[in-house]
Amino acid sequence: MSAHSLSIRDLHASIGDKPILKGLTLDIPKGEVHAIMGKNGAGKSTLAKIMAGHPDYTVTSGDVLLDGESILGLEPDVRARLGLFLAFQYPMEIPGVTIANFIRAALQARLPEGEELEATDYYAKLYAKMDALSVPRNFTSRSVNEGFSGGEKKRCEILQMAMLEPSYAVLDETDSGLDIDALKIVSAGVNALRGPNIGMLVITHYQRLLDYIVPDKVHVMSEGRIIHSGDKDLALKLEAEGYDWVEKQFGESGIKAA
């Protein structure tokens, strides 16, 4: 666990009195892409939201460190400004707020007090990123996610990520709802952001995504824990054989039975 990683340590968290994360440990160093796979309801989105600081969840023990510093006591916006980005599984619609104004406000929030974002540079960059992600330019004046198709919402998440240049990004099922062409475009967009200055956690159900965004590691999550980790081939095996074998071999029930 280095000072250059997003590090989750023995994290226990619950909603109300229902425990969802039950001792999850994971380390995502900068420069690497990790994938998490797991059944519906395993707690993947919960993990993402807890890292981002969603107020509904209570962390009962454990820690989340960003570059060595705990972020659990921080407001969601402070975590975001420290470099944490979450591409939501279900992005929210924000009526009346245009994409251009939204991203601009988000960038402005990262500047020191009294400093103004330069509008010309901003739009030049925004249009370049939109073109790269095949987001039509007239989307800038549409309200954030309002009336967007499923695929458009996902592309818009990656557009925001490209504009905000986070140091750690969690992509929660960014591939679901995308057609093949869109999947390629979005993957290319994500790959373009890959590099030594960013660590990524990609949550997906489909190994197909991992053909395009090739992960350094693949983790299997079950009942609020990482039960098994491997390389890219693990994803292939999961796709071919399902989750039963991993859960039997490494999961809570499997361990108890053994």
Binding site: P76, D77, A80, A109
Partner: peptide, 11 residues
Amino acid sequence: QIFYMQQRGLS
């Protein structure tokens, strides 16, 4: 929705 916007860095 507020959480979504906060996740982008807005207070």
